[in-house]
């Protein structure tokens, strides 16, 4: 018993020392820039990304770095690797460092609410990038692509191409993680476009991918085996194209536009793979999220919030559809084309 008490006393003593050190050394970190931004120190913005899994997020992070450099502001970053609780911890680290603003790519619309509340409590402006939060009393702004409208427009273009062939096409749609509101918007945009012209396409396969390449590939292979005459494919994100191309190649169905047996292909995001497929003549169209617009809007919203100016709760990026007809004109604004260079 005495031995036991001794061990625990030693351990508790050690812990108390560590706690005292933690608290004793505890001079709060100097704030990076004043609340008004009038200090000589550059403002520091904390970027918390849920993931860097796809090219879109990497390109966005790079675009933030470039935009903040341009404005002589400092960026610190944290990646939560798909873990909502880790993201809460990381944003609290930003608050500890007394950043001047927070940009958040949340894991999901619900788990980000305590994060926004923590930023609100610390009086630090917070803007959500590309994913909006659920309704709550937490105060934030969000810059998001108009997923529904842009998808609908992209699919409408693809259906126009399908109509030119004079036959009814069997269609496959790859759906993202339904915990992600963007995935829901794109699914609904696809369904709305498909409903408008049932004489052009019949949806025979809906592949749930949960934003996972392996699941997408397995789903596409299965769907092509069950329906070998699928001739129209839309993916809710361009990052799934490698899985689609691989499955189409295996089935002998990967053909250029204009070649017999070409499968009409469309996507969403505007990544480097999509740009290459457009340039090579395999991809019909993709809905491009205007990363540079979204990044600029985020930084501007943070500065406006700091200055006490009114900011819309949701700032929409209209994006644009890029296709064979406008490739040269639109490519300079397509983030995937810039990344490729």
């Amino acid at each position: 018993m005495g031995h036991l008490v001794g061990h625990w006393s030693l351990a508790i003593g050690h812990f108390l020392c560590l706690s005292l050190l933690l608290i004793g050394c505890g001079k709060p970190a100097a704030p990076n820039g004043s609340a008004t931004g009038s200090s000589d120190k550059p403002l520091t913005i904390g970027l918390s990304f849920e993931t860097l899994q796809t090219g879109f997020w990497v390109a966005s992070l790079d675009a933030f770095q470039a935009e903040l450099d341009r404005r002589n502001m400092k960026m610190i970053q944290a990646i939560a690797d798909g873990d909502a609780n880790r993201q809460i911890e990381q944003v609290k680290n930003f608050i500890t460092r007394k950043v001047d603003g927070i940009v958040l790519v949340p894991k999901d619309a619900k788990a980000c609410i305590p994060i926004i509340k923590a930023a609100n409590a610390a009086n630090i402006p917070i803007v959500l990038f590309n994913r909006p939060p659920d309704q709550s009393d937490a105060q934030s702004a969000a810059v998001v692509a108009d997923n529904f409208a842009l998808t609908k427009e992209t699919v409408a273009y693809m259906m126009g191409e399908a109509k030119k062939t004079g036959k009814k096409h069997k269609a496959m749609v790859l759906i993202g993680d339904l915990g992600d509101i963007n995935a829901i918007g794109r699914r609904d945009g696809f369904d709305a476009a498909a409903k408008e012209a049932p004489e052009v396409i019949e949806v025979v396969a809906r592949v749930p991918t949960e934003w996972n390449q392996e699941k997408a590939q397995a789903g596409v292979v299965n769907a092509l085996q069950a329906n070998p005459d699928i001739s129209f494919i839309f993916t809710s994100s361009d990052f799934l194209f490698p899985s689609i191309v691989s499955a189409l190649k295996s089935a002998g169905k990967y053909k250029k536009i204009g070649e017999p047996g070409h499968v009409i292909l469309g996507g969403f995001d505007g990544d480097a793979t999509a740009y290459q497929m457009l340039a090579d003549g395999y991809l019909d169209a993709t809905g491009v999220q205007d990363v540079y617009f979204e990044v600029e809007a985020c930084v501007k919203a943070i500065l406006d919030l700091r200055a006490g100016k009114p900011v819309d709760q949701t700032i929409k990026d209209p994006g644009f559809v890029i296709h064979q007809g406008n490739l040269k004109e639109k490519a300079p604004r397509m983030w995937g084309a810039k990344v490729r260079r």
Partner: peptide
């Protein structure tokens, strides 16, 4: 920066 602060200690504990 901010490592040895009471706020951060609370964050680590949580």
């Amino acid at each position: 920066p901010g490592f040895a602060t009471p706020d951060n200690f609370a964050n680590i504990l949580a």
